[in-house]
Design a protein around this nucleic acid. Structure first.
Length: 243
RNA sequence: GAGAUUCAAAGGAA
């Protein structure tokens, strides 16, 4: 069984899902029972190539194999659905998870994944609703959640809202202000609001809110490209001494 | 007897 899982896993990674399925059939012929690992590989594989019908089909057949999907499997499928824009189905799945509870309860990764896809499709209102729904389920945002949401808000020009979200999250103590404002800096930079990005960055340095590694390297890289070696170096020294 | 297989989400440069 393990041997089959290894090979199936390899075909899935490679994108040869039809071969992977053939192996699954072969397993059954040998009276070997596909397990959680087998299904995880296959479902992830189908999601990666955008074959969601197949992924859903497999997901449903899991139970008949006596294999009960856990939240990781649920989340992988939900992520796949979101990535192809099937939000209705994704929401249905999310509701199913919330109803089932226990092993299947959605966690921070589940919600974050959904928020991410909604943001990428410009569905900010929905993304914010999921964000609230998450808190309602006593599931709290982490740095990844903040990152995707701030990025989404900034790319749609809702900078004020981004700051609002960040200050809420920080106030509630779910994510450090270093992590949050680093996200803001990077997001502003990405949408080419350089002045604002630098302003927040300087504010951070002045208030000893330490920018993370990525925020520093993005801005320092930019300074160097623009020839501001002096500034870049002084930031470097600043970071260096504060450890 | 032990070991080997899957494990889900974000941002820069290389």
């Amino acid at each position: 069984s393990t041997i089959y899982n290894v090979v199936i896993g390899l075909f899935c990674e490679k994108g040869d899902l039809d071969l992977a399925i053939e192996l699954l059939r072969e397993m059954e012929l040998c009276k070997l029972c596909p397990d959680m690992i087998t299904f995880m590989s296959l479902i992830k594989g189908f999601c990666n190539v955008g074959r969601l019908e197949d992924a859903c089909g497999l997901f449903k057949s899991m139970k008949s194999y006596g294999c009960c999907p856990n939240m990781v499997v649920y989340t992988a499928l939900l992520d796949g659905l979101c990535r192809v824009g099937s939000f209705e189905k994704a929401v249905e799945l999310l509701e199913e998870m919330e109803k089932e509870g226990g092993e299947c309860s959605p966690n921070v990764v589940t919600y974050t994944s959904m928020i991410h896809s909604l943001c990428e499709n410009g569905k900010l209102v929905e993304a914010l609703l999921v964000f609230e729904r998450m808190e309602g389920a006593k599931c709290y945002p982490n740095r990844v959640t903040v990152s995707v949401l701030v990025q989404g808000l900034c790319s749609e020009g809702c900078i004020d809202k981004a700051f609002k979200v960040v200050s809420d999250v920080v106030a509630r103590g779910h994510v450090s202000s270093s992590d949050c404002y680093s996200c803001v800096v990077i997001s502003l930079f990405r949408v080419k609001r350089f002045e604002e990005a630098y302003r927040v960055f300087r504010w951070m340095l002045d208030s000893s809110v330490r920018p993370d590694g990525l925020a520093c390297s993005v801005l320092m890289n930019d300074m160097c490209l623009k020839g501001n070696f002096v500034d870049a170096f002084s930031v470097y020294e600043d970071i260096e001494t504060k450890g």
